[in-house]
Design a protein around this nucleic acid. Structure first.
Length: 735
DNA sequence: GCCCCCGCCACGCGT
DNA sequence: TGGCGGGGGC
């Protein structure tokens, strides 16, 4: 091991006791250090279950797990490597039922954070949250108030996590003070009634739980004696507090603003304290980060956590990893040239032992399809001339929408690829519909999901029925499902109906029976004779039963191709379930586990990495990864830095710096060769718009750049031309 | 009362 | 491109 690490890396790997702060520049072998460090711990006899490694993204968590597995060759049964959110979820899952029980026994204790929650709770993503906010607005009779619902959701999130208060709360710069406080309260109430949590709850509830229950906290603290946090610069204050409470057994008793604005980190941070910080009882904590790669402030990342850490863990060992092993010196110089324009950063000197390297290639394609074609043709060229594999290529974009053209070009050029990050797959209507069925089957009180499917496919339960049901539900302070059940029962008993027309009652009855049937099939694990039970099989049966295929055909009337495409997405979805069920590392099968999982993952998590495929992703998603050849596409003004981020955020200078860090992250993903493309024109809002290059391009020292000349127009022969016309006609259905 | 069709709008990152 | 809300037809 010693031979494979430099002096500082080795120190980081071997310092497993006490508190350690590792400042790891881009490409400085951070992942290597973390994996070796875990391996070293295991070698020293520290049991797997005592180690908790927290990361920011699922991708990073998976990567870390795989690397440790490879390095140690051990089965990792009780090593915890997960995202903060997934960890929070597991804490909740492990304790919600116990809490419900003990609360029943001991009502004298204060209302627990869990009151009302059952183990089958749903997790609401942003879309679900918006639906619930809509409903809450209606409930408060404020539906007519003009607000951007996503911005309101953002405000609610800030309120919940303590990043904002009602006093002076604003939405897009317009002051709203306490205007939406009742809506927020209704929203919170809704979550309780529907047995649902949002993403913020996955952090706030576990924190509350640990604070309220010293016994539970003690259990966790005596288990997790070694805590590691990756991408520390991107952790939020809430995540920091969660880590801190696990490490020190106490929460931060003040708000971050007060703490940071009024006090500076002590100058004597490195003075004498030799005891483990926080007393003998403190866990061993290691955080790893790089302030230059902080790109998630919009999600609450609080990179001043670095200062908090220095204060809360006085005497922490600070190690800087400054040697870059990843990139050629050309690429590194380009990156340093860009990032040096940021005023607000820790000074560091990242250097590379690699010499030279090819220049950064800059290309100004005419439009986005020329850009995509250029990338595709370069890849084909490099595969042959320099024998790169598909997997060696990474195409990075600022936004998800920019990946589309690239994808098309890759399809046309027959380059296998995969797109990662982005929530798009699970947000597709057909996927979300089926997931909603599953969520309702798991947790019928989940109104948001229930409303999505109660009339999808059409089953004659329209607006009027739903209004009647929700009135009934509100009267009883219950969920819609509860109202459905009450209604059906009283209808059976011949008592008064909600509806004049008994046909509607029949429709409701059928729907209720459908859900109950699949509930017993799936939760009760009923298998058909001779066939083993499988979730995938049941999901397929469900899709057949509701005749979703016919629904798609009807929905897309003329467009059968689209219907087929959507159905193939569902097939893919079912295959995902199958693969997950087959996965030997997965020891928690069943519906709840599956739903929890997919609520937290993005498209390609869990997809096989072994295939040789080119990678297309956003810059955000690329953090922590590296590729021999990187293309940064759409390096235009307005895209990076992103126009909306500049105009909408109050703190313009800070935002610009974050966008610059984003560009820096993109550059530093490249090992050998970097291409940057900036279109002269781009289709936006249905018309072509002239584009200027990103201002960040000027920050790359010019001597590192080589401008790629456009390919000469190729002569088109008659045959190619007619084939092209044919395709055009087919595409636009010209007579 | 339900559903279909059309026109309108938006298109920043992701747990 | 695609999701949605409103208005009119059934």
């Amino acid at each position: 091991m010693d031979a494979e690490l430099n002096e500082f890396q080795l120190q980081a790997v071997k310092s497993i006791e006490g508190a350690v702060l590792i400042i790891a520049g881009a490409g400085s072998g951070k992942t290597r250090v973390i994996t070796y460090r875990i391996a070293h711990m295991l070698e020293k006899g520290i049991p797997q279950h005592a180690i908790l490694a927290l990361t920011f993204t699922n991708k990073a968590a998976r990567e870390m797990q795989v690397r440790v597995k490879e390095l140690t060759g051990k089965k990792l049964q009780s090593l915890t490597v997960s995202t903060f959110h997934a960890f929070g979820l597991s804490v909740l899952r492990d304790h919600i039922e116990n809490a419900a029980v003990s609360q029943g026994e001991n009502l004298a204790t204060e209302q627990s954070v869990f009151s009302g929650y059952r183990k089958n709770f749903s997790i609401y993503d942003e879309t679900d949250r918006v639906e619930l906010i809509k409903e809450s607005l209606r409930e408060c009779r404020m539906a007519s108030h003009k607000v951007d619902l996503y911005a309101l959701g953002q405000l609610f999130s800030n309120i919940k996590t303590g990043r904002a208060s009602w006093d002076g709360a604003d939405i897009d710069g317009v002051s709203r003070n306490g205007e939406f406080e009742p809506v927020y309260n209704a929203y919170q109430e809704g979550l309780r009634v529907y047995n649902a949590v949002d993403f913020d709850d996955l952090l706030t509830l576990p924190l509350e739980l640990l604070k309220e229950n010293p016994d539970i906290l003690k259990q966790y603290r005596s288990r997790f004696r070694y805590i590691m946090v990756d991408e520390f610069q991107d952790t939020s204050f809430l995540q920091y507090r969660l880590m801190r409470v696990l490490a020190l057994g106490e929460d931060v008793p003040f708000s971050p603003e007060k703490k940071i604005r009024k006090k500076k980190a002590p100058d004597n941070a490195n003075d004498a304290v030799t005891l483990p910080p926080g007393g003998i009882d403190a866990a061993n904590v290691c955080v790893v980060g790089d302030d230059d790669q902080s790109i998630y402030s919009w999600r609450g990342a609080n990179y001043e956590n670095l200062l908090l850490f220095e204060k809360d863990f006085p005497g922490a060992l600070e190690i800087k990893l400054e040697q870059n092993y990843r990139s050629t010196s050309t690429i590194l110089e380009a990156a340093n040239g860009v990032i040096s324009h940021n005023a607000n950063r820790k000074e560091k000197s990242l250097w590379s032992g690699n010499s030279g390297g090819k220049p950064v290639e800059l290309f100004y394609p005419e439009n986005e399809s020329a850009e995509a074609d250029f990338i595709a043709s370069q890849i084909r060229h490099l595969r042959i001339m320099e024998s790169f594999k598909n997997r060696d290529f990474g195409v990075l974009t600022r936004t998800n929408s920019l990946t589309r053209n690239i994808e098309e070009a890759f399809l046309a050029a027959d380059i296998p690829y995969k797109i990662s990050g982005g929530t798009s797959f699970f947000q597709r209507k057909e996927i979300k519909d089926i997931i909603s069925y599953l969520k309702v089957i798991a947790n019928p009180d989940d109104d948001v999901s229930l409303l999505r499917i109660i009339n999808t496919p059409r089953r004659g339960i329209g607006k009027t029925s739903i209004t009647a049901l929700s009135t009934l539900a509100r009267k009883n302070h219950s969920s819609l499902w509860d109202a459905v059940c009450r209604h059906c029962r009283s209808a059976d008993a011949g008592q008064q109906h909600l509806f004049q027309d008994s046909k509607d009652s029949g429709d409701l009855d059928t729907f209720m029976n459908l859900i109950e049937f699949f509930r017993s099939e799936i939760i009760g694990r009923k298998s058909n004779p001779g066939q083993p039970w499988s979730l995938a099989g049941k999901v397929r049966a469900l899709i057949d039963n509701i005749d979703y295929w016919s629904f798609l055909i009807v929905e897309h009337g003329k467009d059968e191709k689209k219907a087929r495409w959507k159905f193939s997405n569902l097939e893919y979805f079912i295959r995902m379930i199958e693969n997950w069920e087959k996965d030997p590392d997965n020891h928690d099968s069943g519906l709840y586990a599956w739903i929890n999982r997919i609520s937290l993952i993005t498209r390609d998590d869990g997809e096989e990495d072994s295939d040789d495929k080119a990678n297309i992703m956003t810059i955000h998603a690329s953090k922590g990864l590296e590729f021999p050849v990187v293309f940064i596409a759409g390096a235009e003004k307005g895209i990076i830095p992103h126009e909306r981020s500049l105009t909408e955020n109050g703190d313009e200078a800070g935002t610009l710096e974050e966008e610059r860090r984003l560009f820096y992250v993109a550059i530093t993903r490249a090992r050998k060769k970097l291409y940057i493309t900036s279109c002269r024109n781009r289709r936006r809002l249905q018309s072509a718009v002239e584009c200027a290059p990103s201002p960040f391009l000027e920050e790359i020292p010019p001597h590192l750049i080589e401008v790629h000349e456009p390919e000469p127009e190729t002569e088109v022969d008659a045959e190619t031309a007619s084939k092209f016309m044919e395709r055009l006609r087919a595409r636009f259905k010209v007579e």
